[in-house]
C-alpha cells in the first residue's frame, strides 16, 4: 500500500557531517506522526528535505514519494507548486518567521495566490479571513492590516498555521511549533493545530522534543538518533516495545512524584565521524 508520504533511504550531508543517514519512513493518509529526538538528531532536516528547502550546499540522496510521485527537489518551480499547495509548513520561531515590513494580510494573501495563481485579490482576502477564523483569531478582517510585531507570539503561531492551511494541503509539517511559546500558549496552539488537522483529515508530521505532546496528538511516533531512525511504532506501542534509546528518553521525562530526585540523563555519545574532530 502506498502511503501519503514515503521517504526512501534519505541521506543528507552538510560538508563533513552526515545529518541523515539513510532514513526510510512512510506515513499513511490522515496519519499523524510525531518525530522526536535530541537536538541535532536530524529531525528538522528531515522536514526541510521533504520540502526541498535545504540550503544549496546540502547533499541529498534517496527520494521522497508524495502521493506516489517522487518530489522533484532539483526543480524549484515544480517544488513551489508542491509547497503550500500539497504540503504545508509551520516554522518553529513565530517571532522571525514573518517579514517585519509586510502586513499579516500580505503574508496570507501571497501564500494564497502562490497556491492559486491568477486568483483575484478579493478571493485571497476572503480566504485569509476564513483561515484566520479557523485558527480562532478574532476580528480577523481588521487584523489583516496589522504588522507581525503587533501580534503576540501565540497569535503569530496560529497565523502561521493559517498560512500553511491556505493552499489546502494534504500534509502539514510542523517543526517544533510550540518551542518558542510559554506553556499555556503552547497548549492553545497545539489544540488549534490538532483541531484543524483532524477536521480536515490531513496528514501531520510533528517534529518535537515533547513526548507528552506526541502522546496526545499523534498516532505514530518515530524516534531519531544521530541521523538514524531507530524506531517507528504507533503511539500505543511505545512502552511495550521500546528501543533501549527510546526507553532512556521516556525515563528522562519529569513525572509526578519525582520531586527532589535528579532526572535520569542519557550518556552523551558523539555522532560517528566527530570523534577525530
Amino acid at each position: 500500500m502506498s502511503g501519503l508520504l514515503d521517504i526512501k533511504n534519505l541521506r543528507v550531508g552538510f560538508g563533513a557531517v552526515t545529518a541523515i543517514k539513510g532514513v526510510s519512513l512512510s506515513l499513511h493518509r490522515g496519519a499523524r506522526m510525531g518525530i522526536v529526538g535530541e537536538s541535532g538528531s536530524g529531525k528538522s532536516t528531515l522536514g526541510l528535505a521533504t520540502l526541498g528547502l535545504l540550503p544549496d550546499f546540502a547533499r541529498c540522496s534517496g527520494e521522497v514519494l508524495f502521493d506516489g510521485t517522487a518530489l522533484p527537489w532539483d526543480d524549484d518551480v515544480a517544488m513551489a507548486a508542491v509547497r503550500g499547495n500539497r504540503i504545508g509548513f509551520v516554522h518553529q520561531d513565530p517571532m522571525s518567521a514573518f517579514s517585519p515590513v509586510h502586513t499579516i494580510g500580505t503574508h496570507l494573501t501571497r501564500a494564497y495566490t502562490s497556491a492559486h495563481p491568477g486568483a483575484s485579490k478579493s478571493d485571497a482576502i476572503k480566504a485569509a479571513v476564513d483561515r484566520l477564523d479557523e485558527v480562532e483569531i478574532t476580528d480577523a478582517k481588521s487584523r489583516l492590516g496589522h504588522y507581525p510585531h503587533e501580534y503576540s507570539g501565540g497569535m503569530r503561531q496560529r497565523v502561521m498555521i493559517a498560512a500553511a492551511l491556505i493552499g489546502n494541503p494534504e500534509l502539514l509539517i510542523a517543526d517544533e511549533p510550540t518551542t518558542a511559546l510559554d506553556v499555556t500558549t503552547q497548549a492553545a496552539v497545539l489544540r488549534v493545530m490538532n483541531d484543524v488537522v483532524e477536521s480536515r483529515g490531513m496528514g501531520l508530521i510533528l517534529i518535537t522534543h515533547d513526548l507528552g505532546v506526541v502522546a496526545e496528538i499523534c498516532s505514530d511516533v518515530a524516534v531519531m538518533y544521530h541521523g538514524e531512525l531507530i524506531q517507528h511504532v504507533s503511539v500505543g506501542q511505545i512502552h511495550e516495545q521500546a528501543h533501549s534509546y527510546t526507553e532512556a528518553l521516556l525515563k528522562a521525562r519529569p513525572r509526578p512524584g519525582m520531586r527532589g530526585q535528579r532526572l535520569p540523563t542519557i550518556a552523551e555519545l558523539l555522532p560517528e565521524g566527530w570523534s577525530d574532530v
Binding site: 526541510l48 520540502l51 528547502l53 524549484d76 518551480v77 513551489a80 507548486a81 508542491v82 509547497r83 503550500g84 499547495n85 504545508g88 509548513f89 516554522h91 520561531d93 522571525s96 518567521a97 514573518f98 517579514s99 517585519p100 509586510h102 501571497r110 501564500a111 502562490s114 497556491a115 502561521m160 498560512a163 500553511a164 491556505i166 493552499g167
Partner: peptide
C-alpha cells in the same frame, strides 16, 4: 532569515521571494 524560508514554504518561487519579501 526564517521568513525567507517560510515564504518559500508557502510556494513562492525563489525570485519572487527575493523581490517581494
Amino acid at each position: 532569515a526564517p521568513f525567507a524560508l517560510v515564504a518559500r514554504a508557502h510556494g513562492q518561487s525563489r525570485l519572487r521571494v527575493m523581490v517581494a519579501t
